[in-house]
Design a protein around this nucleic acid. Structure first.
Lengths: 342, 342
DNA sequence: CTGAAAGCGCTTACAG
DNA sequence: CTGAAAGCGCTTACAG
């Protein structure tokens, strides 16, 4: 493993000249020398030592991808196909830019700050933020530029890349309305806590109001998480006299649970109950009938986040930006058209 | 951001003494001094600079988690819930041991070697290996200890953590036989190329032979990948006069595709076709009927891999070990019991 | 129990 | 266009 010194010695130049060759400082080294040095580096498969480099430059070319720990395990985060895919794209995009990604799960802000300092991390990306208090604290105390996905606080300067969740809730609901549905429920993990869910809920309300409708309390299913939540919704539905004909679910897994639970209780999807999901994740095409859902472009989201991060890394004044990405409806088989009776 | 020098100055000791406190060299520093220094470090929230540390110690405390690039995108790997979960557990376990994980996708061995050198990576873990040529090359050229998941080469000294795939294929098939099935097919992405699949196939053959049966060429579905592959299997089945009553599929997604395709073509699962999958991934419980499948303990796999890696990092002679983890059958609803007619 | 000194591999002003 | 020197923050022998 050769060092810059070895290369310099063999080329008969100073280490400084080698350093200039490495950094393409053409103004500071003659073409002939550069060529010769480059050749020697290639022959020795010279690779610079990042520790030495970052020690002096105070920059490591490391981007920390932050994963909150949920339910005591970080694996629960990457288990989510959405998180996995997002991290995969991020890694890919950052590698292209010659940056390295360190994956860090955490449950305390201090852990993140320590990693940031110990590695002189150049930038950070928060994926799947959970608790607001922690996220807000992190945003305020972070020393390095930080991009947050899927969460935004209006009162804080921050860099965020979000989805048009309001539009998503609206589009899903509007789609059902246009298919003739008038009795539409809403199922979510936490309608009044998470801003993402709240936005979707407001989109839902807006679409309803455009048709002169209002939400009905008994058709709002709150606290419903993943497949189990969906099955709970199905159970609740099965016991209702006056059932909604359709449900907007804020997550595909939740929607899948509803489908499964309904089918097991003898209700047909979409004939008895129509369902629209969110995410267009893998399960959406796996189940029968396939799920109509609100899709996002995860690759675009990742590249937008990386762009924001690099902008912030290059310009220390760029610390407040809120990008909202569009969503689109993917029509499949879980919504039926009904004639409008009224 | 204070350095060891600042701490030393404030404590009125040499930096060396501070260093000894940090490394708990109790023999080399008095309790009183240690206490005082520790207090000052805490007050300043001192965090050591890993670049400086690794520059001198030739060890970074970084573990590289290597993800082969498939189909031109790394995201395709972490998209796999199995890969995501495995990486999540690995990160968790490594963090507990005060190590940092760098996620690196790659398609050329040189990229890995460069990262290893540039960061003085202490150890590497290869997840989801794909091409044998690349994997073998990597094993032979790696300078740092390397643990490979799910692949083993008998002719190479290497550290691997695999599944008892033969046992898995055997158990799945045996289960079907015991349920009365005698006409059992086998569906896989590449029966004769991947050793993992080959092992499962041999387990399948062994179970068959114990019941005096042999494989039938037309019931072997090769080159079937993911859900699409499964749907192709279903299509083939629908056209057969003499159909198998059950299929062993080497992947849950594949099994799900078979289920879905069969249902769409009017065949009932499990009544007309029984299916056993592999992995017990999330989709297994999402579909109706729920999938009977061969499960592995991913957390155990991750912790075993980490154990192997640390063993190798501590002992430079430990470079050849092949751990095989057990699998277990998870019975759900995709297999029916049939009376034995013969 | 404590310290002064050398050095890890690199980059950054500063001279020439 | 090229070089000598200082120094980033830490650890490691070596003395005392």
């Amino acid at each position: 493993m050769s060092t810059i010194k070895d290369i310099a010695a063999e080329a008969g130049v100073s280490v400084m000249t080698v350093s200039n060759v490495i950094h393409n400082n053409y103004a500071r080294v003659s073409p002939a020398t550069a060529q010769r040095v480059r050749e020697i580096m290639a022959r020795h498969q010279y690779v610079p030592n990042m520790a030495a480099r970052s020690l002096i430059s105070k920059s490591s070319h490391i981007i920390a991808v932050l994963l909150p720990i949920w339910h005591g395990s970080a694996a629960s985060m990457l288990l989510d196909p959405y998180a996995g895919q997002l991290v995969g794209y991020l890694e890919e995009l950052l590698r292209e830019k010659q940056y390295y990604v360190m994956v860090c799960s955490f449950d305390q802000v201090e852990q993140v700050l320590a990693i940031q300092q110990t590695w002189q991390v150049d930038g950070m990306i928060l994926v799947m933020p959970h608790e607001d208090a922690i996220t807000r604290d992190l945003i305020q105390r972070s020393q390095a530029p930080l991009v947050v996905f899927d969460r935004h606080y209006d009162d804080l300067p921050m860099l965020s890349v979000c989805l048009n969740d309001r539009g998503g809730g609206y589009t899903a609901t509007r789609h059902l309305l246009e298919k003739g549905h008038r009795k539409i429920g809403f199922a979510a993990p936490s309608i009044y806590e998470s801003s993402v869910i709240q936005d979707r809920f407001h989109g839902y309300l807006k679409a309803l109001s455009e048709f002169g409708l209002r939400e009905r309390q008994e058709w709002l299913f709150d606290g419903m998480v993943h497949q189990e939540g969906g099955e709970a919704v199905a159970q609740a539905l099965s016991r209702m006299k006056d059932r909604p004909t359709a449900i907007v679910a804020t997550e595909d897994l939740l929607a899948c649970g509803i489908l499964k639970g309904c089918q097991e209780r003898g209700m047909q999807v979409p004939d008895d109950i129509s369902v629209v999901g969110f995410d267009d994740s893998m399960p959406a095409r796996l189940i029968t009938p396939e799920l109509t859902t609100i899709a996002q472009d995860i690759r675009l989201k990742a590249s937008t986040g990386v762009l924001e991060l690099f902008h912030a890394m290059e310009d220390s004044k760029y610390r407040n930006s809120h990008v909202v990405l569009d969503i689109r409806l993917v029509e499949r088989q879980s919504v039926r058209k009904i004639r409008v009776s009224s």
